[in-house]
Structures are given as C-alpha cells and as structure tokens.
Amino acid sequence: MADTVQQESQEENAGHRNRLLAGKAFVAAFLLALIWPFTPSIEQPIQYNHQKHIAAGLECSNCHTLYENSAWAGLPTADACAACHAEPVTDSSEEAKLVQMLSEGKPLEWKQVNRVPNHVYFSHKTHAVAGEIECATCHGKMDERTAPPPAPFFEWSMDNCINCHEDRNASVDCNACHR
C-alpha cells in the first residue's frame, strides 16, 4: 500500500519535473526565436545578375511578362533566356551553367522569393499599373543587385500592407485584400 503511495508520489514528482522541463524549454525557445535572425536564404538555379541585364537595356516586363496585366508578375522561362543565351555571350560561369541547362532542355525552376500570406489577394496590375507604385518600393533597387535576392526586400506583413494602404489612401476594407 505504502509502496504504491510512494510510487504515485514519485510519478507525481516526475510529472511535475516534466512540466517544469517543458516550461523551461518553452521559455528558452521563445526567447531564442525572438532574437533568432529570421533569414531563410533562397538559392536560385542561376545567380542571375539584375544589374547587368538592366544596364544592358532590359525592362522588368521583358522577363516578368505578366506584371502589367495580371495579378502575377511572372518569371522568365528557359525560352526567354534562350532568346539571347542560346550561345554564350560572355565568359560568366553562371551563363555557362545556363547554356548547359538550355542545351539539356532542363526547365528553369526559379524559386519564389516574395510570397503574400495565405488568403490574401495581391495584384501586380493593381499596384504597379493602377496604383503606379514603383517596382523598387517593394522589391528594392534591382538595378543595383548583382545576385538574386536571397530574401524578400519588403516584409509581407499585414501591418506593412495596411500602413502603406493608409498612407496612399487605398482601401483598408478587409475584402479589398482578403480572398
């Protein structure tokens, strides 16, 4: 009988310890998470140099073909690259990689960097064409970038959206963005 009681109390103690442990872990993880630099770096298949291309006279819409007339900006396909790079035009190693991929017929699997949260409707057309917002406002100065951005320039949080909407007198109705 006593044994049983003892055992129970031990188990109770163990349970208490466990809870304590979990609590400590929680607090530690919470603090860590708060100060942890949140920078998931995104690696693209080709280290595309925006600066060079823009300097060479390319427009945003040459590669991001959809941004002026749809919700989405669009990413360049292998065909778009092949228009100029079917043969190497420089001695860049990234270009060599591209030419290699093109010759093998591999698709270019760009990774999406900017991503609005779920249930949010974002239209490039509305912002870039109707709202006349510069690309750089959300994407930074791409003409200075020599490598693809590893992370979004703009933090896609509701606060940031709302702030901007308020500044520009755009709608802050939930329905204007949420889908």
């Binding site: 466990n18 442990l21 979990a22 872990a25 929680f26 998470a33 249930h119 949080s157």
Partner: peptide, 27 residues
C-alpha cells in the same frame, strides 16, 4: 518527456515567430 519537450520548443518557437502584430502570421 521527449514529446513534452518537443511540444514546448515548437510552441515557444511558433509563438515567438508570431510578431504580435497580426493574427495572419499564425495562419
């Protein structure tokens, strides 16, 4: 214990990730 601990870490980390600004981040 492991499950309890893992839960605590995940929960804490998740809560930490929630910048207390908008519930959308939780989603």
């Amino acid at each position: 214990e492991f499950i309890t601990l893992a839960g605590g870490v995940a929960g804490g980390a998740a809560l930490g990730r929630v910048s207390l600004r908008g519930i959308s981040r939780l989603n």
